[in-house]
Design a protein around this nucleic acid. Structure first.
Lengths: 141, 141
DNA sequence: TTCCATTGTTACCTAAAGGTTAGTAAACTG
DNA sequence: CAGTTTACTAACCTTTAGGTAACAATGGAA
């Protein structure tokens, strides 16, 4: 299957989407693009079930508020599960669901593809930035 | 290769990333999660090279400002190319690069995976929302 | 009794995203 | 000469994202 065939097949699929499906797709893709969500999914995938405070240590730089928010969103979309134990002090454990593990497995090829091309990306950026820089300094003369 | 093996392999890769590579990866993933960028990549993939105004018609709902911004970012990362013809009125054409086409081809399996599971996602959401609703109305009594 | 540990929530504030509108350049048309 | 067309850029404003910090709940430990 060539690239062209893959792309035109995807077009057919996307055109047939209901508005609700399209929104759903966008939201899930949003998790993929969001640093915190992605970090949470990856951490839970690598280290398995974890409690809140441990996750906060692991996901460097996340605030309590944003971690809570990310966890709620991921839970709502069925990507992680939350288990609360009726203890004092409270203990809550988070874990990837089957669906969440599936998503992670889907994302990883994309990651590795990007990482494998990081030189290409870097070069493109350098080139672009240099041309832009040249233009602005010309503009000042 | 099992899911576990895939995940632990990805962990090894991600741990070895330099800070710059990690930032690059995050930026590219950001394009994947961004509605406008994604729309642009998809449109250019499906319909080929296009000029600005045509793209704006195609990407429903995008403002001129955001379309410009998205195009600049994608160009900077080497995913699309910009060709400006010295005519009046101006004509500028955008096209996916090889790299951009490659990214699109990588994203499509992720899309189809999500779309194929939209029922699962919907159910998860309904369940979550119902439980939450129950809790808040309890709280009001 | 007072403090601690843990997982939150809420209020408040700043920074960033993004929309709307107006302006620009420059040749062609009437 | 005024109007049109295209691809922007700049200014202004509103909405959202996200950070910080304070507070809540509670049984056990000191």
């Amino acid at each position: 299957m060539t690239d062209k065939e893959i792309i035109s097949a995807s077009q057919a699929i996307c055109e047939a989407l209901s508005e609700e499906q399209d929104g759903l797709k966008r939201d899930v893709l949003n998790h993929v693009g969001n640093t915190w969500s992605l970090f949470v999914i990856h951490s839970l995938g690598v280290d398995g079930r974890m409690r809140f405070s441990r996750l906060q240590e692991r996901v460097t730089g996340v605030s309590q508020k944003m971690l809570t928010k990310s966890l709620r969103e991921l839970e709502r979309d069925g990507l992680i599960s939350r288990t609360s134990y009726m203890e004092v002090p409270p203990r809550v454990e988070y874990e990837l669901t089957e669906l969440g593990r599936g998503l992670l497995v889907q994302i990883i090829p994309l990651w590795t593809w990007i990482i494998a091309r990081s030189d290409t990306f870097r070069e493109a950026r350098n080139k672009y930035d240099q041309i832009k820089k040249g233009k602005t300094s010309e503009g000042l003369i």
